[in-house]
């Protein structure tokens, strides 16, 4: 892969933005006022919330790409679904680690069966299931995993509603709406930066998968040349 192609430029630019952002955002976060009730621990939300967005985004990208694979036979769709599922598992892990850290201070326990965290956990389990099915699902693994992604996407609203009625103790309004403008700005910037990071990681991971597919084609072509009729 030679440098200088447009996709490489975008990749480098994205990586640079993300890197600069991650250098700068701590100052911005430090500058936000300390939340009067929860104290300094509230600042974990600048990581927690963007990661949660990306978990949801990954799930839906995975499902959309899976539809393209299932119904149009798009191999690119399959690759995109795999890569976004992996990223979903990664960012979901961030959500599931930072959530309890915060909960320990705010609620006194690591794990509360609160609506949003439980929904995130279930989505995360579905994405892990996707990766397991894809890996160990036998000859139909790719289509099987794509089917799981499809069900996961339609299941997400159901999960959210059920869990919400089931239990609601998440500080759903106390963080963002009562926050001062600095907090809003910091959360939004953080979300944007995480999105860029997600995009960069996705592009890199996709590039690897594409290279792998291209290598496969080359191997086949080599075999053809050697075997020729």
């Amino acid at each position: 892969m030679s440098a200088g192609r447009p996709s490489d430029f975008r990749l480098v630019a994205g990586a640079a933005v993300a890197a600069l952002g991650f250098l700068g955002i701590p100052f911005l976060i430090a500058a936000t006022p300390i939340e009067p009730v929860m104290g300094i621990v509230q600042k974990i939300f600048y990581f927690h919330v963007p990661c949660a967005y990306l978990l949801f985004l990954s799930t839906f990208v995975c499902a959309g790409a899976s539809i393209a694979y299932l119904f149009k036979g798009s191999e690119g769709g399959d690759r995109l679904a795999l890569c976004s599922a992996e990223l979903g598992v990664l960012f979901g892990l961030c959500v599931l680690v930072t959530g309890p850290l915060w909960a320990r201070v705010a609620w006194g326990v690591y794990w509360q069966w609160d609506a949003r965290l439980t929904s995130a956990l279930l989505l995360w389990l579905m994405l892990v299931g996707y990766l397991l099915a894809r890996r160990y699902g036998g000859p139909a693994a790719k289509r099987l995993a794509a089917g799981l992604a499809l069900f996961a996407a339609v299941d997400a609203p159901l999960v959210y509603v059920s869990v919400n009625v089931w239990r609601t103790i998440h500080p759903n309004t106390s963080v963002i709406t009562q926050s001062v403008p600095e907090m809003k700005l910091a959360v939004r910037l953080a979300a944007l930066l995480f999105l860029v990071l997600w995009g960069v990681l996705l592009a890199l991971r996709l590039r690897l998968e594409r290279a792998r597919a291209a290598l496969g084609e080359l191997e086949l072509a080599c075999e053809d040349a050697l075997e020729g009729p």
Partner: peptide, 18 residues
């Protein structure tokens, strides 16, 4: 699939959790 029994639970349980 050779691991169909365990995979069925792994795939099914999170989806039917609601």
């Amino acid at each position: 699939s050779r691991s169909r029994d365990v995979l069925l639970s792994v795939m099914l349980f999170p989806i039917v959790a609601p």
